[in-house]
Every structure is written in structure tokens, then in C-alpha cells.
Simulated scan of single mutants.
Amino acid sequence: MDIQKIRRDTIGCEQLIHLNNAGAALMPAVVANGIRDYISAEETGGGYETADKYSAELDQFYTYMAKLLHCRSENIAFTTNATDSFNRALSAVPFKQGDVILTTENDYPSNFIAFISLQKRLGIEIVTVRNTPSGETDLEDLEQKINTLQPRLVSVTHVPTSSGLVQPVAAIGNITKRYDTLYLLDACQSVGQLAVDAIATGADFISGTFRKFLRGPRGAGFLYISDKALQSGLEPLFPDLRGAEWTGIHAYTHREDAKRFEDWETAFALMAGSTAAIKYLLDIGIQEVQTRNETLTAYLRHQLGNVPGVQLQDKGKHPCSIVTFSIANQEPERFKQYFKQHGVNIYTTARSSAIIDFTQKGIEWVARVSPHYYNTEAEIDRFMQLLTAIA
């Protein structure tokens, strides 16, 4: 991996130290240029006409995304963000009153909010699976509850936003596929930093976003739909003329592929940028990215462990590129702004994003530092220098 070339490709590296990749990573120039070029073409040529002109290039989005996830292009849909992807999948599940959603204690806050909304509207039940001592989902408890409760849906967040935990998603998939339940995987914090094989996970749906570790634009996401889910006729609650054809006064026919989950009105400029982001990652290699990230985060965690007053809060046997810690006698917003004033971007996560997890840990907030492969050890040293000065 040519780190210096990658940093030259990343204009933001010239101005700051960006350690908030779990929030929104710095885009490579090729991504931003792809968006600008498409917008310019729309400006001078018209929106519909530009989409027609660039149709072959836009179709590459599905090819590249499928290559990254090891699936077919027909399994991929373009969306506006991870929550949009997740909710489109969730809306396809034929819930009835009394149905159970089985989820983890570390699911994404937006997902819990959606579940609670379904509970209020439809009377479904939300049940969580207990954790192992190391923090991952307890697979024995998962299978026992699937056996007992016969959930309509199992929902898992691959990497929670509040810690570096990595869930055993393939092992979970091996269990769920033995039962009559659907499996929805939120991969918004894992795709782009970890190798994710959609088929190996056994998931029926995988939702994700581009702004995080994929280094794409905000306002762009993806949704994977398995062959099983497509063939069984699952569709979003509100398809439009992109995903279905109106065939009679009271009838429509949905598409055969994953595009049945898309809308007619699409931000094609952002799709062009997202395509460039996937290609950029594929050219580097996701395994190389994962290895580089493991080196950076191990270096960071080792140094944090030596700072008085700092308590690492990550769980899991193999934590990833999200590093969280609590620190005594600090206020979260002021703490974040201190680093920003010194040219370093980090983030803080409040209890409202991880109520179950933070209640168990007895904390109200964490600092979240999320390096990515274009960061350097020297940047981590600078962060540590600033941290030590106020710890």
C-alpha cells in the first residue's frame, strides 16, 4: 500500500488530522471529482439526458458493489443512506401483531427507534439476546430464543457505533438459516474497513452507507437483498415506478432484481461518486485495508492504555477500527472541540446512542477515535500528545 500516494489523493490530509472515519471519512479526490463532473454534465445537458448519457458508467455501481460483497449485481440496490436501506428492508418484512424481532443489546440506535415505532403501530415484540462475557452476541442464547420465540426477524449490527465490537455475523447466519426467520444485517460501520462476504453472512438483507469507511459521499447508501429474499417476493412497503410497473388499475408487478427497492428519483451524481469510491477501494484491496487498520488501531489502543484517567471501553475478542474510551473530568462537547481547535477531528458518543451498552458499563459518553488506512502513526502520536496534555 502506497500511503503517501493515498494521502496525496486525499486533499483533506493536507489541512487536518481526520480520526472520525466512523462518522464520515475524507473522500479521495477521484470521488469528489466524479460528483462534480456529473453535476456539471447535468448543468449543461439536462438531468434525464445526462442519466441516459452516463447509463453505462452508472451501471458499474452495481458491478463494483457486487464484487466487494461477493454477490451478483442483481442483489444490489442504491439508496440514500444506511437508515434508508435498513428501513426499506424492514418494511419488506410481513409483520403481524405479536411477531417478535430478535436483536442484540448493541444494535444501532436508529434501528431500535424503528423497532419501537413498529411496536407502537403493529404490536410487535422486541427481544434482545444476551452477550457473552467478551461482549459478542451469545450464540447459544440466540438459538434458544429463536427456537422458543420463533421470531419474524433477527436483526444484528455488525459493528456498533458506540464501540469497536465486531459481531460474529457469519455464525449468526449459520443459525438463522436453519429456521423460518429473516436475517437483517446492518453493516454501515463494517463495509469499507472489514472484508464482508454477503453470501457467507447468510443475511437476507445487508444495509450500509458510503460516507463512513467506504470514503464516499454523504446521502448515498446501498442495500443487498439475497436471492432467497428476492425469489420469495419480498418488496418494500412503498415501491414506485422504478421498482415496479403499474399493470392495471389495481395491480402492479415488481422487478425481479434488487432495484425493486430503489426509487425513480435518484441522486445520480452521488451514485457516480459512490462508484468511484468502491473502485478506489477495490484497487487498493479490502484485505490490505483491514490489515493496515489493525496495525493503526493496535498502536492507538496500546498508547491509550498508558494514559492515567483513560479507560478503554471497547469489547470483543477482535475489536476493529472504532476505538472508544472514557476519560475523567471532561465534558464531551468541550473535549471534542479541544481537538478540533488543534486540527484533529474526533467524535464523542452519548448514552442515547447506546442505552443498553452504556448502562451496563456505567458511563454517560465515550470519546470515539476511528483511524482509517490513510492515517499515519505520526498522526496518532499527535493525537496522543494533545490527549496527554489535558488528561
Results as ranks from 00 to 15, higher is better:
1 M>W: 10
2 D>W: 03
6 I>W: 13
10 T>L: 05
10 T>F: 00
11 I>P: 00
12 G>K: 06
14 E>H: 14
17 I>R: 01
28 P>A: 07
29 A>H: 09
31 V>S: 06
42 E>D: 05
42 E>P: 02
43 E>P: 03
47 G>H: 13
49 E>L: 12
54 Y>E: 11
57 E>V: 05
60 Q>N: 14
64 Y>D: 06
66 A>M: 03
67 K>S: 15
67 K>I: 07
73 S>Y: 02
74 E>L: 07
76 I>C: 03
77 A>H: 07
79 T>Y: 01
80 T>D: 13
86 F>L: 09
86 F>A: 09
92 A>T: 14
93 V>E: 02
95 F>G: 00
97 Q>A: 11
102 L>C: 07
103 T>I: 06
103 T>K: 14
105 E>L: 15
106 N>I: 11
110 S>M: 11
117 S>W: 07
118 L>P: 01
119 Q>W: 07
119 Q>G: 15
120 K>P: 00
124 I>E: 02
124 I>P: 06
126 I>F: 05
126 I>E: 04
127 V>N: 06
127 V>K: 09
130 R>T: 11
136 E>A: 13
137 T>N: 02
138 D>I: 11
142 L>A: 14
144 Q>R: 15
147 N>S: 13
147 N>R: 15
149 L>C: 01
152 R>N: 01
153 L>V: 15
153 L>C: 08
155 S>M: 10
168 P>L: 14
173 G>T: 06
178 R>A: 03
179 Y>L: 04
179 Y>F: 11
180 D>C: 04
181 T>A: 04
181 T>H: 02
193 Q>M: 10
197 D>A: 09
198 A>R: 03
201 T>K: 08
206 I>F: 05
207 S>E: 03
213 F>H: 12
214 L>F: 00
223 L>H: 06
226 S>T: 07
228 K>R: 15
229 A>L: 05
229 A>V: 12
231 Q>C: 04
231 Q>N: 15
236 P>V: 00
243 G>F: 01
244 A>Q: 08
247 T>I: 10
248 G>E: 12
249 I>N: 10
253 T>G: 01
254 H>F: 04
261 F>S: 07
267 A>M: 12
267 A>K: 12
267 A>D: 10
269 A>I: 05
269 A>F: 11
272 A>Q: 13
281 L>E: 04
287 Q>K: 12
288 E>I: 11
291 T>M: 13
292 R>F: 01
295 T>C: 07
298 A>D: 10
299 Y>F: 15
300 L>Q: 15
305 G>T: 11
305 G>M: 08
307 V>C: 03
309 G>L: 01
311 Q>F: 08
314 D>Y: 04
317 K>R: 10
318 H>P: 01
319 P>Y: 00
320 C>A: 14
320 C>G: 10
323 V>H: 06
327 I>T: 07
328 A>P: 00
337 Q>L: 15
339 F>E: 03
339 F>L: 01
341 Q>E: 14
341 Q>F: 03
342 H>I: 03
343 G>V: 03
345 N>D: 14
347 Y>Q: 07
348 T>W: 09
350 A>V: 07
351 R>A: 14
352 S>V: 13
354 A>S: 13
356 I>H: 09
360 Q>S: 10
361 K>T: 10
363 I>L: 04
364 E>R: 13
367 A>R: 08
368 R>I: 01
369 V>P: 04
370 S>H: 05
371 P>I: 08
378 A>I: 13
383 F>C: 08
386 L>D: 02
386 L>R: 12
387 L>V: 00
389 A>C: 01
389 A>K: 12
